[in-house]
Structures are given as C-alpha cells and as structure tokens.
Design a protein around this nucleic acid. Structure first.
Length: 201
DNA sequence: GCGACAG
DNA sequence: ATCTTGTCGC
C-alpha cells in the first residue's frame, strides 16, 4: 500500500505560509488496543489553540517500525473528520519521507487528506550527523545515501528533531514552520498541545 | 541466528 | 507509547 501511495506525494513549495497548523498525537491507554487520537489546531502567529478534537478508538495492528501509520493513522483520520477549523498544514508526530519506503505517517496522512503535511520525529530511523549546538542549525538526514529530510536543532544543546516532508510541502518551509512553532521547547507547540490533550482524555 | 528499529 | 526519582545543565 505504501509503495502504491508513494507516487501520490507532491513535493512543492507551499503557496502561502500557513496561518494555522494542526498537531496530531496518539496516547495509549491500558494493555489492550485502546488509544486516544488528539488533534489541535493552532494559530501559527499567536500559537493560540483554535480547535481541538479527541477520539477514542482501538487498534489491533502492532507497533512495527516502517508500518507505524497502519497503527495510528486510522484513529487520527477519524479525529480529523471532526475538526471544524481546517488547518493549512498537518504537523505529524513521526516521519514523512524519512522512511524506508519514503512513505511515513506524515505522507500517509497528507495523501489521504490531500492536506499539506510535514513529519517531526523525536527519533531517527537511522544514524545521523548531529547539527551544531545553536538553535536553527541542521544537517541533511540521509537514508540509503539519499537526502530524505533534516535534523533540526530547536533548542540549544538539546537533541535535535527529525524533519521531513509529508505532502505538498518542501523541506525549507517545513523547517521554517517547525522553528516558528518552537519558541521555547524542543517539540512543536502543536504536538505538545495535542499530546497533553490526548494524555488526559 | 541476533539485534536494531518512527510511536 | 508507557512505567518513574532524582538529577545535570542552561
């Protein structure tokens, strides 16, 4: 399925800088397959939360690196259907093109909704060269000798995040957005608000 | 054959 | 992802 959908990914410079950005995250509750998908839509300029949705669901698909979307995407898509403020871009908690078949969660969600999307992972699937210690510094993220994204330092002397394009975006705009959503923490304010929302629900 | 491996 | 106290660094 990933190989079939991969050609649908569109790499392009966004027409306008996004005014709103959605944060998507999934929390797991209990030992069964119960999970909570949370989506928050923020105003990029003020970081104010404009909308938020929580959906409880269940999964039978195990966590398998490379097949992550089949575990979390279904619930996240259901949550996105309930969102009233359509976001200009989806900021996903995971990889986009930085994936073994170049179709991580961010690409999956972007293609299925046809909304611009980017992936911001807390960990890399492969080894990487650390960027300089100053905020804003980055290094190309390579996979099989191919540039699939960037490591990006969002906080001085703190582990970088792993940014890659999901759909209808380009890596330059993706990193610029991540930096704007990261005034004082390592992770984007979008994923932080979604994470907290899903954690208490 | 064994360990690694987004969340 | 999740279970958890103190602790090192800015």
């Amino acid at each position: 399925m990933q190989e079939r959908l991969r050609p649908l990914v569109r790499l392009e410079a966004p027409v306008r800088p996004p005014k709103t950005a959605a944060g998507l995250d999934v929390a797991y509750v209990g030992d069964d397959g119960t999970l909570v998908a949370a989506v928050t839509v923020l105003d990029v300029a003020t970081l104010a939360v404009l909308d938020s949705v929580v959906v409880r669901a269940t999964t039978s698909f195990p966590y398998v690196p490379g097949l992550f979307a089949f575990r979390e995407a279904p619930a996240l898509l259901r949550a996105l259907e309930q969102v009233k403020v359509l976001p200009d871009v989806l900021v996903c908690d995971g990889q986009g093109l930085a994936h073994p078949r170049r179709f991580g969660l961010a690409c999956h969600l972007g293609v299925l909704t046809d909304l611009p999307s980017i992936g911001v992972g807390k960990n890399s699937l492969g080894p990487y060269d650390p960027p300089g210690s100053a905020r804003g510094e980055w290094t190309p993220l390579l996979l099989d000798g191919e540039v699939v994204g960037r490591t990006l330092r969002t906080r001085p002397n703190v582990k970088p995040v792993f940014v890659s394009v999901g759909h209808r975006s380009d890596i330059e705009a993706a990193c610029a957005l991540v930096l704007r959503l990261t005034p004082c923490h390592r992770l984007p304010e979008t994923t932080r608000t979604a994470d907290r929302l899903g954690r208490i629900s």
